[in-house]
Design a protein around this nucleic acid. Structure first.
Length: 349
DNA sequence: CGAGTTTGACCGGCGC
DNA sequence: GCGCCGGTCAAACTCG
């Protein structure tokens, strides 16, 4: 670990070591489409609830509520809390980007980032309006612009804030045909960029609600095009505008808990061994069926912005590998831990 | 016509 | 100092 940097976003292991939280899931949109359970408790409500113990930052919602009509709901969520953490930690864009592209590095080391995560210290909520800062510093920004028309743009004021604080990010993976999953919020795309080492472009979205500076990045995994990596940054300052109740991706009849369940596709990257390993490594991961249980090594990791279904309750908060394992059986395997994937990839090579 | 998307350019951080 | 690259801006364009 010494010389290893944590991938900022996608990364690392999930949880590994106990650290991180996890969640994968799929879902629904803001309010949980799952059922009454969620019905009364809006996603945002949950947010509020959890906000206390979560760093003010965190991201917001997400969820693939819309799944391709033809395909069964199967959002495979990968939570990358750690990742985010990492991001917070390092802030090294390139690195995390690279990781993203390659989907990360081996999880061997578990970042202690979880602590970071829990540590609200990081981002202050105020940061939500990151844009404000940006604008603020600008005045002079035009500096360069002055040199005659640089061709076109009048040169907009860009942020100069030295070290603008990045809000915590939360990344997760979803197996879906569509890139931009409907999480109940309204997003406006403000940019798209080609990602290094990846044939797929990365799209940048911003919450269209006034005053809400939440952003999200969406890109497809270069490893597996069917996997969409979504990274949220910031925290919504408003309630979820839309709450599709029957969100896609969730089976109404879900399981035992009455919560939504996901249908997960076949194991994607892991071989048997890896799967087993995975199970061991991530006791916290919850399986899809469980109705979105999000478990985290430390409960506070739950992001306020998570859709309710995600935060429902750490039923398995006390991650007992063995306990989970049986439930995960057949499900867990579908979850693709980034690190694992990486390994798998390497093996291929 | 307003809202959202596309797209090329600019800015700033980081590594070399 | 330079170049690369991620992130963002905003004009132009598209769509309902």
């Amino acid at each position: 670990m010494a010389n290893m940097r944590f991938p900022d976003e996608i990364p690392s292991a999930f949880g590994g070591g106990g650290g991180g939280s996890i969640f994968d899931m799929a879902g629904t949109s803001c309010e949980g489409s799952g059922g009454d359970k969620w019905g009364s408790l809006g996603f945002m409500d949950l947010l509020g609830i959890h906000q206390d113990f979560v760093a003010p930052s965190l991201f917001d919602s997400f969820q693939p509520s819309i799944l391709p009509p033809s395909s069964p709901p199967l959002p495979v969520f990968h939570h990358h809390d750690d990742d985010i953490l990492h991001e917070l930690h390092t802030d090294s864009k390139q690195q995390h980007l690279n990781h993203q592209a390659g989907l990360l590095s081996p999880a061997s080391t578990v970042p202690e980032s979880s602590e970071v995560l829990n540590n609200p210290a990081t981002p202050n909520s105020s940061s939500i309006s990151s844009s404000s800062n940006e604008l603020a510093a600008n005045d002079e920004q035009t500096k360069a612009g002055d040199d005659e028309d640089k061709t076109k743009k009048p040169l907009k004021p860009k942020k100069k804030n030295p070290k603008r604080q990045r809000e915590p990010r939360f990344a997760f993976m979803t197996k879906s045909d569509i890139d931009h999953l409907d999480d109940g919020y309204r997003w406006r795309k403000y940019g798209q960029k080609a990602v290094k080492n990846s044939p797929y472009p990365r799209s940048y979205y911003r919450c269209t609600t006034a005053g809400c500076g939440v952003k999200k990045r969406v890109e497809r995994s270069s490893d597996d095009p069917t996997i969409v990596v979504t990274t949220y940054e910031g925290q919504h300052t408003h309630p979820c505008p839309i709450m599709p109740r029957g969100a896609i991706g969730i089976a109404p009849d879900s399981s035992a808990f009455g919560a939504p369940s996901f249908i997960i596709p076949q194991p994607m990257y892991l071989n048997h061994q890896q799967q087993q390993q995975q199970q061991q490594l991530q006791p916290y991961i919850y399986n899809s069926t469980p109705s979105l249980n999000i478990t985290t090594a430390s409960s506070n990791i739950i992001h306020p912005s998570f859709p309710g279904f995600l935060q429902e309750k750490p039923r398995f908060s006390n991650p007992n590998p063995s306990a989970l394992s049986h439930r995960d059986h057949g499900l867990l395997q579908d979850i693709v831990p980034t690190p694992m994937r990486t390994e798998a990839k390497e093996e291929d090579q």
